[in-house]
Design a protein around this nucleic acid. Structure first.
Lengths: 336, 336
DNA sequence: CTCCATTAGGTAAACGATTACCCAACCGCA
DNA sequence: TGCGGTTGGGTAATCGTTTACCTAATGGAG
């Protein structure tokens, strides 16, 4: 009655290794060896015949069968904390691009900073024999702990491992150094007092940025740093509300150091709606693409997003726990 | 010497169906039937035993083996034309979320509007037995033509099939209607003359938006619409350069209708840098998330990005060629 | 009591690739 | 001529699941 279920649109029969081998007049084993192990495993003439047959038939190795036999697929699991954040989206694009150049495929999930979603995806990807796990903004979760303990290949991007002990490689800027550099620049302008506008400090990147900024301010006698917390998960709204606090200060400092551009966007709206946008100098992190176009008032710590892909790729073969690849950052100052 | 290669970190032995069957004291076949075909294929007691065993052992079906046997994996190929565009990134996130709720996995590729990259990914995904192909901004390409001809499940999102005849379902706004609505609004304000600022009209979405706008203007006697083309692929830079043209007009119209918010961002920068940002009313499409925060001067046609995921999902089972699912859009006017 | 239909579940053949193992042919050398 | 080493390539097992097919048991009808 019901015959073997098949995606009906697929070309039948599939161009399988067997077909190639038949066309070349060799056994499947030989064909596989030639195609995978290079030309040293067979006579030059055989190599040629097999290659030609594969080419002619348009052979593509079936991903599923390969993944089954080698216990490893060409899929790399990539988790992003919030694709709504353009900088993460760009990083993800860069990673995807680098992976594809190696013949790998990016499976992507937006975790919305939710541990349950993250774990769900990690488990699913493990069931798919994912080759590695790239976490662009990981949250701590039981599933992550499990993988860490199992020694799975983990790469943390842009936000170091949130766990107690780092379980994989890190790729991203040196957040503490970047924070310190930003703060030093601000101080060098003669600033004595500044706002540190931060979101939830549970995110490791933010913590480190704040640490660097604090260190720089602590190094200058009489310099004062007023920390203001932006409430909630949404950085834009949080920045807006935090700015309200700042505006209510008796003598608010001019310099406002935001731990991300999104916070700065929110803060700027707050200032603008109060008609006081001229009263502040805003600083951020990430240097969102649109800054030059619609937020020229913002200075920001910039990283080249295209640098992430190759850096992640470099860690892929064997991400050693605790290894860190720091990408260069620079301060992108607002014109004028 | 070299033993069977294995991702060494993987828990060995894998919790396979055989293990579950053994634990439940049934054959593999029975276990599979219970887990896949529902409880009607075995006695209530057997069902219970199998389910319990699977649960206890933490069984997850191996994606590779499933994909091999059923010729269909749980992977859905998603191609985005430019993840750097926040609206596409958000749409992609929405699609990914909806897919995951169905137990599907999103494999993502940023094509950069490049036919070669698109084809490469399509081919690779076909080799992985992808269940469907979702194209968020497709370009025409030989590979796409091939899939279309083969009757592959194609879903075009946000930009209709660029090919001569639609080969899959479409999900997105009714671009022509949206353009017409926007133009009518502008005309209703008493505007007689306006700029139509467009990028390359090879993109189907843009073409349709322009068509709608032109239709609305044509319906009003004496209304004048001046088309200005933004050169190049980068809409931001293109908008900037196009605005230079506009600024050089003897008596430029106040209203500037841009076919995307990115173009509008570029145009605004052009106006601002000339000190003439007060002289124009800008309109766009997409209503980027950041508009309310840093581009309050922009009115834009908005769609709820979260609507894309469910709509795509609805088309998934069998995307019929030519079927269209129009998402609602509304005009998001700038405050004041 | 016999016979047929139904149900429960086991057996084994796929799916497409990789690879351990084996065999045959050939080489050079004593 | 006999022998060990190398090379080229075939055979078959295996990865984990699905499912066509078969068997045995059970129940009801005649």
């Amino acid at each position: 009655m019901t015959q073997d279920s098949t995606a009906d649109w697929q070309a039948r029969p599939r161009v399988s290794l067997r077909l190639v081998a038949q066309a070349a007049g060799v056994s499947i084993a030989t064909a596989s060896r030639v195609l995978n192990d290079g030309p040293d495993k067979a006579s030059a003439e055989t190599v040629l015949r097999v290659r030609e047959a594969a080419e002619r038939l348009g052979y593509r190795p079936g991903g599923a069968a390969q993944a089954l036999r080698r216990r490893e697929s060409r899929i790399v699991a990539v988790l992003a904390a919030a694709l709504i954040n353009p900088v993460m989206a760009t990083i993800v694009a860069s990673i995807g691009h680098a992976l594809r150049a190696e013949g790998l495929v990016m499976a992507l999930c937006d975790t919305h900073e939710d541990a349950a979603i993250q774990d769900d995806f990690l488990t699913e990807m493990q069931a798919q024999n994912a080759r590695a796990f790239v976490l662009v903004g990981a949250v701590d979760s039981p599933g992550l702990t499990r993988l860490r303990a199992a020694g799975a290949p983990l790469i943390f991007v842009n936000r170091p491992d949130p766990g107690p002990a780092p379980g994989g490689a890190y790729v991203g800027i040196d957040n503490a150094a970047a924070g310190e550099a930003l703060a030093r620049h601000v101080l060098a302008l003669g600033t004595q007092r500044a706002i540190l506008l931060h979101g939830s400090l549970e995110r490791t990147a933010g913590t480190e940025r704040a640490r660097g900024i604090r260190a720089a301010f602590a190094a200058v006698p009489d310099a004062e740093l007023i920390a203001v917390e932006a409430p909630g998960l949404d950085q834009l709204t949080g920045g807006l509300q935090a700015m309200a606090q700042v505006l209510s200060l008796r003598d608010p400092p001019r310099a406002v150091l935001c731990l991300s551009d999104a916070l700065a966007y929110g803060a700027w709206r707050g200032a603008r709606e109060a008609g006081r946008q001229e009263g502040f100098d805003l600083y951020g992190f990430d240097n969102l693409l649109f800054n030059d176009w619609v937020a020229p008032w913002l200075s920001s710590v910039a990283v080249d997003p295209a640098a992430f892909g190759p850096a992640v790729l470099a860690q892929l073969p064997a991400p050693r726990a605790g290894s860190r690849c720091f990408l260069p950052h620079r301060l992108h100052l607002r014109p004028g």
